[in-house]
């Protein structure tokens, strides 16, 4: 996984709540068997509208998405994270994320930043007023900075360290091989098995 320390870039204000993963990447894109090439599917239906915020020329090349509450609800599709990353987003800010989406993001190095809705509103106003505003998402300091706005955010320390160092979760778990084997040795015999192997 790519490490994330700090990122500065322009932002897109997405004034919508309950942005579900079917909107982020529609199901027909999920037939692909790779992790790349999803950028054109990102918000596919909404992007058909020339006025949709992602289509506005002043937001071209933006790398931080500032969205309404309950971002990433619905399906567990990790393709939603890949689509945001393939398009160029490095971080998403929202007052509330769906759990599975957030987990998927952190596993891929897409930083999801939880800020109060009131701060999100201030960021929206700032970015809409001046689309060239640079937003800094600083994981070292756990802080978002833009114009006169400085907002601290929480992220549990373990997840933060994994992101900062770009650690591979599977490698970390495999260091516990002896513990896993010991657990397996004490599993009851009545536990289900899909087949005799």
């Amino acid at each position: 996984m790519e490490a994330f320390t700090t990122h500065t870039g322009r932002a897109v204000p997405l004034r919508r709540s309950n942005v579900d993963t079917d909107q982020i990447i529609p199901a027909h894109w999920l037939k692909k068997v790779t992790r790349d090439g999803f950028e054109d599917g990102l918000f596919e239906a909404w992007r058909k509208d020339a006025e949709f915020v992602l289509n506005r020329p002043e937001h071209a090349g933006a790398t931080v998405l500032v969205a309404g509450p309950d971002f990433g609800t619905g399906s567990s599709r990790e393709h939603a994270v890949w689509a945001l990353q393939n398009y160029g987003f490095k971080a998403v800010v929202s007052a509330r994320f769906a759990d599975i989406f957030r987990g998927n993001s952190l596993k891929n190095g897409l930083l999801t930043v939880v800020l109060p809705q009131e701060t999100v509103e201030r960021l929206w106003t700032l970015i809409e007023h001046d689309p060239t505003t640079e937003v800094t998402v600083d994981l070292l300091a756990r802080q978002v900075r833009a114009g006169s706005i400085t907002a601290d955010f929480d992220l549990d320390e373990n997840a933060r360290q994994r992101l900062l160092e770009g650690l591979d979760d599977i490698d970390l778990t495999l260091r516990r091989e002896a513990d896993i084997a010991a657990y397996e040795a004490r599993r009851p015999s009545f536990k289900p098995a899909t087949a005799q192997v």
Binding site: S76, R77, E78, G103, N104, K107, I170, T173, R176, I180
Partner: peptide, 14 residues
């Protein structure tokens, strides 16, 4: 779970 976790479970069962 997401696909990264699917890989994690396939490899480690945890």
């Amino acid at each position: 779970i997401g696909t990264s976790q699917v890989e994690h479970v396939l490899a480690t069962q945890t």
